[in-house]
Computed example of a mutant assay.
Amino acid sequence: MANKNPLLQAPPYPVEQALKRLGENLRVARIRRRITIEEAAEKIGTGRRAVMEAEKGKASTASGVYVALLWAYDLLGPFSDLANPATDEQGLALASAKEKMRVRKSKGLSGDF
Rank of each mutant, 00 (worst) to 15 (best):
T61S: 06
K20H: 08
V51C: 03
L82V: 13
V103N: 08
A93I: 02
K43V: 00
Q17G: 04
I31M: 06
S60W: 08
N84R: 07
P12G: 08
G64C: 00
P14E: 13
Q9M: 15
S63P: 00
E89L: 09
A86N: 04
L92R: 10
L19M: 09
L69V: 03
A86P: 00
L22N: 04
K58C: 10
A62L: 11
P78A: 11
K20Q: 13
A40Q: 02
E16M: 15
E99Y: 03
D74K: 12
S110I: 04
L109E: 13
F113V: 10
R34M: 03
K58H: 13
A68G: 05
A93V: 03
A93R: 06
L26E: 02
F113E: 15
V15N: 05
L109Y: 06
L94R: 13
S80F: 15
E39V: 00
I35R: 05
E99P: 00
K100I: 07
R21T: 15
L69H: 02
R32A: 10
A83C: 08
Q90P: 00
V67G: 01
L22F: 09
R32V: 00
A68V: 01
A95M: 07
D81Q: 07
E53K: 14
E42D: 12
K56F: 13
S60N: 15
L92S: 01
N5V: 07
I37T: 04
A10V: 04
L69Y: 01
G108M: 13
M1A: 15
A40M: 02
R30Q: 04
I31T: 10
S106E: 09
S96L: 07
I44S: 02
V67Q: 01
M1H: 12
W71R: 10
S110N: 12
S106P: 03
E16Y: 07
K58W: 08
A2T: 09
L70C: 10
P11V: 06
A29P: 00
E99R: 12
E38W: 00
G47I: 09
L75Y: 02
I35Y: 01
R104H: 14
P78C: 13
V15P: 02
N3W: 06
Q90T: 11
P78Y: 12
D112K: 15
I31D: 01
L92Q: 07
K58T: 11
A95S: 05
K105W: 09
D81A: 11
E39H: 02
E16P: 01
S106L: 10
F113W: 07
R104T: 10
M52K: 09
N25S: 15
P14V: 04
R102S: 14
G111P: 00
A2E: 12
